[in-house]
Design a protein around this nucleic acid. Structure first.
Lengths: 151, 151
DNA sequence: GTTGACCTTCCCATCGTGACAAGGTTCATC
DNA sequence: GATGAACCTTGTCACGATGGGAAGGTCAAC
């Protein structure tokens, strides 16, 4: 199947405004790897193919990829993005749905932030009491080891 | 090798203050699953075994497991915990080393918190401008899709 | 001696991403 | 019209920390 009867067809596609996966990755900011991955997850529809089996993307696809990138940037999970995408595509959706999702995600973020913050504060307290010099005494290790803090 | 010449030996071990993995999990707060995992990673030494090949743990082992649990709770990675454990075991360590690690970890936490916080704030701003009713207009989706916010 | 609780090892899944391998396609250049 | 670079294809493996489950062995108690 080397250089057989197939017209190149990729150049044709390009002339019609299609992008190869590499080009799509470049202009959408999503790596080619991840584009394929999202396709395999069903997050985006299967890309059209050239006769040489190369994936091609049009402006709409790129738009969706940008949507995904931005959503990831805001910390939405792939599943949540799936829902957001379908809401995005549905011109008749109620903004209520979207807002509900966003608020739930904000709550998630808040709880993660709270967790990290309490780790941070606990550790900072310990570090404050640690001399941090050549001596072996160390309240940090003492605490990790379960010793009550020396008064 | 069913009921062969082996003395039970587990009850003996128990009498000598050893704990089975399930018991160790219970009193250390680390699941049996994770205890085995930590062993396979080399984070803790290979446990002693009974003749029936059951792992047994003594008070020192439990102490180390608790140390690990607390460290994880503060968000240290397994690798960092490996270092902390060796510092903990080394009675001559300088507290400087430990403090350095703790401060580096605090910096990590701060940067993660910052990331989440900026996600949260960006999303909160968008959500504020979303009516959240039955209408389809939605600044959140508009932004994700790349539309500049309507003024 | 049988039952049931506990243990053993091994494999798979998560989540999002990256790296690599082995091979096919396209295209420009000689 | 052949060669080689740049790109594409599918596939597998890995991360980090954890959980789930299967298939089978051991222990204790009745």
């Amino acid at each position: 199947m080397r250089s057989a009867k197939n017209p190149p067809e990729l150049s044709t596609a390009r002339q019609q405004g299609y992008y190869s996966i590499g080009r799509a990755a470049e202009i959408s900011g999503v790596t080619a790897k991840m584009i394929r991955h999202y396709e395999s997850l069903g997050l985006i529809p299967e890309a059209a193919r050239t006769l040489g089996d190369y994936r091609v993307y049009d402006a709409t696809d790129i738009h969706a990829l940008r949507f995904i990138r931005r959503s990831r940037h805001l910390g939405f999970s792939i599943q949540e993005i799936g829902t957001l995408l379908s809401l995005w595509h549905n011109k008749r959706r109620a903004s209520k749905e979207v807002k509900r999702l966003a608020l739930a995600h904000i709550a998630d973020l808040d709880s993660k932030i709270g967790e990290l913050q309490s780790m941070r504060d606990a550790l900072a307290t310990l570090a404050t009491h640690c001399h941090g010099d050549a001596r072996p005494e160390c309240p940090i290790l003492d605490d990790l080891g379960g010793l009550p803090p020396a008064e």
